[in-house]
């Protein structure tokens, strides 16, 4: 196994809301290996964004975060604000879903990149500007030196997302977290942005965490996958293993709902995502699981190695082998 750059252990995040405490993340374990591209999938509200915002230390103060996050051996949970500032943007970067609003409308593109550079490296402003233009070139923006002087509103959505990527990789971070970077873009642009991310991963050896709803995207670019449900991870493994013989009933459902050539009808998972203020006891998936038994309603399963996957299902061993749908 390769070196682990990011190790998340038993991460919990709770928000205080008017209707009571909301535990959005309920004990996540997750490893990111150096240079890999890890896909994170899960329904809306499953806690994907919150987990990684907690990792970045970007949650509002009213969020309570416990557990352990080791970045290259450095503990981030409970770290001082100053320590987190030095980590953010240098070792750990994040890009967000909506490129249209992610850039500050009143500053020039080039300045927004060089700000990132100069806040972590001692560079002259001329060198920073030069480097910013190089970065624009790396993420595939034509005429980078002219574009650097423009403002965000002069860029298209796809171009802006490239700029956001350029900012994120400016200091050559160890881990790049991409939270649904293509959801807001149209299909052709999506593919281009994914290419840029893959290129960055290969060229600089950056580990990438790609958060998405889209299993198709994961299948195309990821090395490993981590599946989340109701604030916990339910299954993880390499892309081949997970897609070939998923073990967790939720993963099976996700794969069954995936459109494939030749397959006639989609089979969506029945039922609704749980209410996180008051999630189901035991395995949170039991109200929707066709294999659920009484044990599932009381016992909380955690990730256990099962074959070449890690699965959080009490009945994983007894379940019939998944039918691979083609």
């Amino acid at each position: 196994m390769a070196e682990k750059v990011l190790e998340i252990r038993d991460l919990h995040v709770t928000f205080d809301t008017p209707s009571g405490p909301l535990e959005a993340v309920r004990g996540i374990d997750l490893d990111v290996e150096a240079g890999e591209l890890l896909g994170v999938v899960g329904e809306s509200g499953s806690g994907k964004s919150v987990s990684f915002l907690a990792t970045m230390g970007l949650l509002p103060a009213r969020a309570r975060v416990t557990g352990s996050v080791l970045l290259a051996g450095e503990q981030l949970i409970g770290a001082s604000a100053k320590q987190m500032r030095s980590v953010r943007g240098r070792l750990l970067s994040m890009i967000f879903q909506d490129p249209l609003s992610a850039l500050n409308p009143v500053h020039r593109i080039g300045n927004q990149i060089s700000e990132m550079l100069r806040s972590h490296q001692s560079l002259s402003s001329r060198d920073a500007d030069k480097r910013a233009i190089e970065l624009l070139d790396i993420v595939g923006i034509p005429q980078p030196s002219d574009r650097a002087r423009q403002y965000p509103h002069e860029f298209s959505g796809g171009m802006r997302q490239r700029v956001v990527i350029a900012i994120a990789i400016a200091n050559n971070p160890k881990v790049l977290i991409a939270d649904e970077p293509t959801t807001a873009l149209d299909v052709t642009v999506q593919a281009q942005i994914l290419e840029v991310i893959e290129r960055v991963q290969e060229r600089f050896g950056t580990a990438v965490v790609l958060i998405t709803h889209d299993l198709g995207v994961i299948a195309r670019v990821a090395d490993r996958v981590n599946v989340m449900y109701a604030g916990r991870n339910v299954e993880q493994g390499t892309i081949d293993n997970l897609f070939d013989h998923p073990s967790h009933p939720y993963t099976r459902g996700l794969l069954a709902s995936l459109p494939r050539p030749g397959k006639q009808r989609l089979k969506p998972i029945t039922g609704f995502p749980p209410n996180m203020v008051n999630p189901p006891k035991g395995c949170a998936f039991h109200p929707r699981c066709e294999f659920a038994t009484d044990v599932c309603k009381s016992e909380l399963p955690s990730l256990v190695s099962y074959g070449d996957l890690q699965t959080a299902c009490i009945r994983a061993k007894e379940l019939p082998k998944a039918v691979i749908l083609t």
Partner: peptide, 29 residues
């Protein structure tokens, strides 16, 4: 509460710089 402030915070720059360079200028408009 806007997205670009989150981007600014994710850069690891100082709170003061975030407020003055990114917050104030936009808020003054």
């Amino acid at each position: 509460n806007s997205d670009y402030m989150r981007t600014a915070r994710s850069k690891g720059i100082s709170e003061r710089r975030i407020l003055i360079k990114h917050g104030m200028r936009n808020a003054l408009i």
